[in-house]
Design a protein around this nucleic acid. Structure first.
Lengths: 154, 154
DNA sequence: GTGTCTGCAAACAGTTTGCACTTCT
DNA sequence: AGAAGTGCAAACTGTTTGCAGACAC
């Protein structure tokens, strides 16, 4: 479902994170690294609560505060992305080492399908030139009703 | 900056809202209509706090609760869209009567530029067919650094 | 050793909700 | 009359923060 890029020539996410922290004069700690590792352990969208639960299941009792303090670091380092805000809280996904993808969301059952499409990258490039922007990324979300939910509506 | 569609053949947003409410067995009230009117009175992104302030400036003392209760109705009716969650709260824009547009966001100064691009609509259409989705809309946000912020970084 | 980080608990902010009263039909 | 809506204030929930002790460098 979510293909990885060829990692052979890439730094690991841990290396990237350590370099990011060092460059900011911040420390690499067991807590931060455990959070990072857990974030990359599953290929699904997640929220802070789920992440904390997963850490607990590993026997790691990392405080809520530390997780909340670490999330912006992961985002700033480019390893993780805020995907959408829903049900009163933010949802994230890790993006490092994965091809860029967009989201197709069913407004009926709330199911989310990922897809890739090169055309969006081209649009992005053109817009960047037109507006003199240095583009670093994009988010495309398409929404509607999946087949099952279309039938339910009738 | 943000061109309107040709309104001559369109229902007004008020008509749309009234029909939406009626169809849901809900009432059209002065509060709901004042909120709707104020939402369509300015062509900018806004948040609930700003909206309440603008209503106050009109001498309308509509409670926070009513505004919070009305926002989901405006979204559900398709008149308004949630644009992004930032600084701890949601930001909206009205979309009825306006061509669809996307957002280009500067990560440096947080400035947001709107743009239109037909290619995205085509992508949307194709994805809908591939996935058997009935597409109702999309959100594309491209981010990066504007020219001024690129220079600042050097 | 020094400055950063963690965990805790309290604080905060946006949003939701229960309730008594009002309003629309 | 009855159902639905409003305003108020309290409750709720996700997130942030101050502080004392712990730890990385």
């Amino acid at each position: 479902m979510r293909p990885s890029l060829n990692h052979s020539k890439m730094k690991s996410e841990l290396e990237v994170f350590r370099e990011f922290l060092e460059q900011k004069g911040m420390r690499s700690t067991p807590e931060r690294e455990a959070i990072l590792t857990e974030v990359f352990a599953h290929h699904d969208h997640f929220d802070v609560e789920e992440l904390i639960m997963r850490l607990r299941h590993q026997g790691l009792r990392i405080s809520r505060a530390s997780v909340y303090r670490t999330m912006p670091l992961l985002v700033e380092s480019g390893l993780v992305q805020e995907v959408f805000f829903e049900d009163g809280h933010m949802h994230y996904e890790h993006i490092y080492g994965h091809e860029h993808h967009c989201h197709l969301r069913c407004l009926g059952c709330r199911k989310i399908i990922e897809f890739r499409n090169g055309a969006v990258e081209e649009v992005e490039k053109r817009i960047g030139q037109d507006q003199q922007f240095e583009i670093t990324g994009h988010k495309l979300e398409i929404y509607g009703y999946c087949q099952a939910c279309q039938e339910k509506k009738d």
